[in-house]
Design a protein around this nucleic acid. Structure first.
Lengths: 219, 219
DNA sequence: GCACGATCGTGAGTAATGCTCACATTCGGT
DNA sequence: ACCGAATGTGAGCATTACTCACGATCGTGC
């Protein structure tokens, strides 16, 4: 029947809070979520199990807190990239370069944590909602760039969403699970090429055209 | 300790096996994985808890069996689509149409199960491996189509992988979580347009061009 | 029918784990 | 030095994944 988790007010409690979170991050990474017990977390953190539950109402809350921390960092990194774009107003190719490199950096920054959160975390509705908010924010920023570059097509909103989802999935695979015989760099370069083509095609063919123009060459 | 699960030989045992799996599918869908207990599964299946463990060595095995069943169906559906393509040899636009429609059908066939396995399932290494095998098979088939159409670029293998990962993520989002105010159909149409542009661009520009972009810095 | 080995079903019991609560300890301010 | 608030403790409870010794049922040869 423990209610809300206690809010840290003194220094030592803040130390406990961080110790617990850090221990949780370590153990989740080492053993996975299921095999990590809250008692082990408390033990590694050097606090009693009771202290752990003062600050985190349940085991899932540990994961959620880690997700929060990680996504805040990710959000900040993305914001930096978008700020740069809004400031420099580069062309399509360089915009994609900056954007995709930012996503790559995101995945390289703390791969273990990223994998943990993407593979394990989406089990709680709260974590899913948090992830969706980040995705949504990214999509809005991408949409602004699309409009600026005049490559929004008929529905910049949908298009931005698809770009965010597509790039995230592709970079995730390229960085965390590169297939044998293919380097991450090669894959990243290919991702940039593909999206450049996808978005430039629309411009070349005229942004009004939703119709599939008859292929000018090929075949 | 880890007894191999008993293999069903008589009719009644096969019935038990199915009853357990169906009950598991229902309860996982209703309560999620964590809140579903094996005792509840046995109860709903109308068998004792002991019977459940005759056929499934542990709780994860239930999930894995469901994944196996679902992925087998998905694989069959994809194979049908690829067989059609190899037979009819349509152009790029129609190839994408068939492929993406097949993936959409995959997601619409049993959305609850799909969501369960992709979103909610705590991913066991076995389930991840199984998913990767399916992805790999799809990528190989896509690669063959790319070569046939002459849009493989410099690395048809990487490109095929990126296509599979990208389309899967985009269709997943479009079918299971369409953003407010945007219809699934609209999103699917946009996905086709984007990929048509991405792949056609390479053909038009000449597949040799890997014009490495000038450093992004441009500060 | 009947016996009998193989297959199948049972459910109370066990170990492990998430979480609670009554109490002890320490801190900050006076 | 003192007190109330904040923090820390860990034995113990409730739940749950899983086991095991045994009983029920099936298929088959006679």
């Amino acid at each position: 029947m423990t209610r809300l988790r206690r809010k840290p007010r003194q220094q030592r409690s803040i130390a406990s809070w961080h110790a617990v979170l850090d221990a949780a991050a370590q153990l989740f990474g080492e053993l996975g979520y299921a095999r990590t017990t809250t008692n082990k977390v408390a033990e590694r953190a050097g606090v009693s199990i009771g202290t752990l539950y003062q600050y985190f109402p349940n085991k899932d809350a540990l994961l959620l807190a880690l997700a929060e921390r990680h996504m805040a960092e990710a959000g900040a990194e993305l914001e930096r990239a978008f700020a740069l774009l809004s400031q420099q107003q580069p062309d399509l190719e360089q915009t994609l370069e900056v954007l995709i490199d930012a996503v790559v950096a995101l995945h390289r920054h703390d791969p273990a944590m990223h994998r943990l959160l993407v593979d394990l975390a989406p089990r709680t509705p709260e974590a899913v909602a948090r992830l969706r908010r980040l995705e949504q924010a990214a999509a809005e920023a991408v949409e602004a760039q699309l409009r600026r570059l005049g490559v929004g097509g008929r529905s910049p909103r949908s298009r931005a969403m698809l770009i965010v989802q597509g790039i995230e999935a592709q970079v995730h695979g390229a960085v965390l699970d590169p297939p044998e015989g293919v380097s991450t760099e090669e894959l990243v370069a290919e991702i940039k090429l593909l999206w450049l083509g996808a978005l430039r095609a629309e411009t070349a063919a005229g942004s009004a055209g939703r119709r599939a123009a008859p292929p000018p060459t090929s075949q």
